[in-house]
């Protein structure tokens, strides 16, 4: 062991200045990134486990956790752009495979997007809208496939895919009736606030279900809850069709994996720095 460490020390001393800087920089970046991801997993796991579930009927204002079922917006489901599946929410990405002179491949995103409509959920007591902008969305329905033709019947407007290149298509969806777990900032809109909320959304969809939703909501004259990203960026905004238990496991696993990974660049950094200086 001692011999190996001495060899590493010798090697660190023999590095020229530019290699030394590069290795130090790369190891520092990886150390910090892995450590940040470890802390993120740890924090999220604790926040999810430590936040009680609010019922929508009497939902407390502020950072809250809700559980319910997704429903098509005022009975109007969306059609996802890549697979044309009926859903309540979607996100898609199309990437093109590029090769450099050495034959190394990389993926460049040529088109991506999310459904602009809020997601409607209900529990046993009431309904709420989830405004997914800025949220981490975890879905059970996630499809990914590859295609060389670039000639699919895709409903996303004019996109130059370029024939002959390999493309990767990814689509995530939330379907009607799926259980939804969400953690974010909950606020209740009165009638005036509701108009302010729906007006900018209606610009994208002037005669669609959003108008109908706004009218129906006004007719019901009951408050509308909206769950959205919290102003405090440290508080995660999570929307998931996986249950609370699965999410806790997921973030605990993230913390464990990055805790282990953290040690590799950290020790490499320590070896190079102290070998050089020692």
């Amino acid at each position: 062991m001692q011999e190996h460490l001495a060899a590493v020390s010798q090697w660190a001393r023999s590095l020229d200045q530019s290699d030394f800087r590069l290795i130090t920089l790369v190891a520092t970046i990886f150390t910090l990134v892995f450590f940040a991801l470890f802390l993120q997993g740890l924090r999220r796991h604790r926040i999810i486990a430590d936040t009680p579930t609010a019922r929508l009927r009497s939902a407390a204002q502020g950072y809250a956790e809700i559980k319910g079922w997704a429903e098509a917006f005022e009975g109007h489901p969306l059609l996802s752009p890549l697979t044309h599946s009926a859903c309540c929410w979607y996100e898609y990405r199309i990437e093109r495979e590029d090769r450099d002179g050495d034959g190394d491949t990389s993926w460049t995103t040529v088109a991506s997007g999310r459904s602009g409509r809020p997601l409607m959920v209900h529990d046993e007591t009431h309904r709420a809208l989830i405004e997914p902008r800025g949220g981490d969305v975890v879905t059970r329905h996630r499809e990914q496939w590859y295609d060389r033709k670039g000639g699919l019947n895709i409903d996303i407007g004019p996109v130059e895919l370029g024939s002959g290149r390999r493309h990767r298509y990814t689509e995530k969806r939330i379907h009607d009736g799926e259980p939804v777990y969400a953690l974010g900032n909950l606020r209740t809109l009165d009638e005036g606030a509701m108009a302010d909320y729906f007006t900018p959304l209606m610009k994208d969809e002037p005669a669609g279900p959003l108008v109908e939703a706004a009218r129906n909501q006004a007719r019901r004259s009951e408050p509308m809850h909206v769950l959205e990203k919290h102003r405090d960026r440290r508080r995660p905004f999570i929307i998931s069709t996986d249950g609370e238990g699965d999410l806790i496991k997921r973030y605990r696993r993230q913390a464990a994996i990055f805790f282990v990974l953290f040690w590799f660049p950290f020790l490499a950094l320590a070896l190079v720095l102290l070998g050089r200086l020692g």
Partner: peptide
């Protein structure tokens, strides 16, 4: 009803 719901929430906290 709201007090009953929020009592549940408080007790969970």
């Amino acid at each position: 009803n709201s007090i009953a719901d929020r009592r549940e929430y408080y007790n969970e906290s």
